[in-house]
Design a protein around this nucleic acid. Sequence first.
DNA 1: AACCAGGAGCCTA
DNA 2: TAGGCTCCTGGTT
Length: 352
Amino acid sequence: MSNPLAALPEGAVYGSRLVAMEGPHGERTPRVPGDAWDQEETKPCLETLERGLPGLYLSCFDMLLTEDATWLLKLSDASPAAAAAAAAGLVPTPRSAAGATGGMASEPSREEPEQCPVIDSQGQSLSPGVLSGQEEERSLEQVQTMVVGEVLKDIETACKLLNITPDPIEWNTANVQKWLLWTEHLYRLPHSGRTFQELSGKDLCAMSEEDFRQRSPQCGDTLHAHLDIWKSAAWMKERCSIGEAKTTAGDELWSEADSSCSGQPIHLWQFLRELLLKPHNYGRCIRWLNKEKGIFKIEDSAHVARLWGLRKNRPAMNYDKLSRSIRQYYKKGIIRKPDVSQRLVYQFVHPV
DNA sequence: AACCAGGAGCCTA
DNA sequence: TAGGCTCCTGGTT
């Protein structure tokens, strides 16, 4: 199995963050001045990393925290390297796990600003003596592949929901606004208002972190970091499509993403199903009660309505209107009320 | 108050 | 024309 990360060049791709950063002797490659990684509050995590798994660090980054963390926990039983990854933030803490559910949880603390993943592409940078040889590399590769897969999946989901392309370079000003609103909403960032209004994706990609901070002192660095991830993922997609590894996890994910970003207007029932298929992101606002029977519950009606409004460019969308649209499906035999009717509970007539 | 049901008119692709 | 948005009235929880 090929590792998408192996295709990454040494050092940063588009941005300085996705790929990193520590040499075989523990030295770090220089980072851009003012980089959030240099901030004091990030250092304990970094130190944890350096003790356990140099080369791969993920902070409490919501996009990467998934139900797959249980897999990581299992892995950690057998692999100190993976355990170190868990200690470094891959496995949700109570706080970060809550934050993984589509931004519905508590606001990220300012003491622990959200960070992008920093993933080493160099297999040789593991600490000696932790694990030996192939086992160690295999563990690292599994973790890396999973992390990359999760990042791509989350971007794919956002693309579907926002109907935008995965590559920020291609965004028009409206796409940029969608992405900004989405990111701010998902991570409960303060609204940047109109400060990015006139920018295309190309403009946005050309901006430095400092430019972001100037436009949005409160969350410019975070937005810049998120954009970096998108840019890096787009780069990886391009790289994968060029070439060598034709059936990498990344390719499969992206082909899926591409087919869903084809510009076809999404139906409400499809949108709801997409949310339901991403429980780690949206489980707090909509979830299956009985997946086999297609019964689901809208836990946060206002939030689901906001997401739908965002997706359809209908800022005035609310649950009243959304539920009316759901009821239109009764006649069409797509959605119905379950036999035992409950508030906010619906059922797909033809569950997958 | 929030949710549910359904009629009706309108808009857009 | 289909699908969805919006507004509405009235009922239920």
